[in-house]
Write a protein that binds this DNA or RNA. Structure first.
Lengths: 292, 292
DNA sequence: CCACGCATGAAACTTACTTTCACGCGCCGA
DNA sequence: TCGGCGCGTGAAAGTAAGTTTCATGCGTGG
């Protein structure tokens, strides 16, 4: 399990690192294979810092020392070659890209985000969250902007299998509702950056009421972690141009889905029944053949 | 060229090596990953020889020194590991599944849906749609239930880069608005099954007004195709249990993202500017450090 | 039986990595 | 505004890893 996604892990930790360490991190992420070839002095020079900082960086990402970093980087770099045409991959969309390229690039990034998220997702934390969700008499989910879609999606899913779940698009309603939570209830905050003030506020209120708080973010060391009992992380390295952060959204949805399945699995019969009933409810709105 | 098959090369050279070097070689070939983890002294001891011999071995196989060997070994070892555990994959979640299994299964399905969608997505249709979107003075997007999230997401994206786009959660508003479309405008209907009555109705109205209609569905031969000028398909094979159809949602989002990038790419400067402006607008809501 | 060459490990040496420590900068409280 | 406190940082000292050198010993051919 400590094998998974070092590069991804580094990108996630990046904002939490000190400036000098960030310079090192960026070099490493930009070209892992190259970094693996360099000696510590060499890398330090390239990052315009001292060897000491490079070692600190290694420790920051949970490694013993520099040789370990080199080896892990070499391994990762080797793994990540192949499937797709590397020219397009792992970066911004080049200006002259034709549509086939665009599709390949986006799909690659998206699929990667999903896979890497799964790799680094901690099953034990998931289990704890599912446990809490199962025990909760009320579940509240918060998310602003793009993360709001995910929050809403989760709410809908839980509702469909008969759990009491709310999503409040608006901060004031959210705060009011959070204030009414109690011990045993669960509040989930979704924020890609982990710095969305509104979401933090709501989680804080929920926590003060004794509710179990859960954060879903790309950056495990961001402020949202401080107000959460459980932190679940996604692993999306967004490219600059890709506005809406679709990759991160997909990663979030994947995590939400895992939680959902976990909850549903606790009571398969009941959940299955509920799903069938709700599916039946919309069936009348389906058309089976073309109309005149 | 010198990259390929170090292990293989070593096995080939093995008979030509001196006895002590052969002991080293055998250890290395037997478990490259393990060897990569060892220090030179460590490996020498394991091979019952001296460090000097290990170095000689490195030179014998054409490498500069021991660190290079370690790195190459780590890279090779990584390459030969199978990506995913195939046992869990490709089906419903088994009843006794533990969380790691659940995660692996879901992520695999999700990633697969994204990749396969990309594979079968027709770049020419995409291009045509993008063309239409660019030319449109107004864009309307429809989707019910889960597909509504995707529709809403698309609307938000287009809006962010300054295109006039609407999403109507409610059928009546949608019908009214569709009736006001004209030639050159674009109406997009999103429906996983392709049988969602409401969405069909709206597309039909839009089409009758002369608007270009686009369908996004998993089933190219479903009723929605009959009311659409362009059909874009996702490729999600849902497993039965997986309610909310997350995989299909991810596939839809991926397609939407491709279209979005296509539209944005037509006018990079303007789009980038718009994205920056909108990002700036929410910046004040970000917190950078933990609060008391 | 000696001499030569080759494989080998011990030890010297060099380089790479790691730790320690002190400086300086920014932030908080007075 | 000032003092001090803590953190990030690099210089330098210290340690460990890797590399070279060299002497030994063994086998082989003269």
């Amino acid at each position: 399990m400590p094998e998974a996604g070092l590069i991804v892990q580094i990108s996630g930790l990046l904002p939490a690192l000190s400036p000098a360490e960030q310079r090192v991190a960026r070099l490493v992420v930009a070209d892992p294979a190259d970094a693996a070839r360099r000696t510590i002095t060499d890398l330090a020079t390239a990052a315009e810092t001292s060897e000491a900082t490079v070692i600190r960086f290694c420790r920051s990402v949970g490694l013993e020392g520099y040789p370990q970093l080199r080896i892990r980087l070499a391994a990762e770099a080797a793994r990540r070659v192949e499937p797709v045409d590397a020219r397009v991959v792992g970066g911004d969309i080049p200006p002259g890209a034709d549509f086939a390229q665009i599709i390949a690039t986006i799909a690659f990034n998206d699929a990667r985000a999903v896979e890497e998220t799964a790799q680094q997702l901690d099953p034990e934390v998931c289990e704890a969250v599912v446990e809490a969700l199962n025990a909760a008499s009320r579940i509240e989910i918060y998310g602003a902007g793009a993360s709001g879609f995910v929050a809403s999606d989760f709410q809908q899913k839980l509702h469909r299998i008969g759990r009491t779940a709310y999503y409040w698009p608006d901060v004031h309603s959210a705060l009011t509702s959070a204030a009414l939570l109690g011990r045993g209830d669960v509040a989930i905050g979704i924020s890609h950056t982990g710095t969305t003030g509104d979401v933090l506020d709501v989680l804080e209120v929920a926590r003060s009421r004794g509710a179990t708080t859960v954060a879903l973010t790309n950056f495990p060391r961001s402020p949202i972690a401080d107000v959460a009992d459980h932190v679940l992380t996604t692993a999306a390295r967004e490219t600059t141009y890709r506005s809406g952060a679709t990759a991160s959204r997909l990663a979030q949805l994947t995590v939400v889905d895992c939680l959902f399945v976990g909850v549903a699995a606790r009571n398969r019969a009941k959940a299955r029944k509920a799903l069938e009933v709700t599916a039946e409810a919309v069936r009348s709105r389906r058309v089976t053949r073309r109309r005149g």
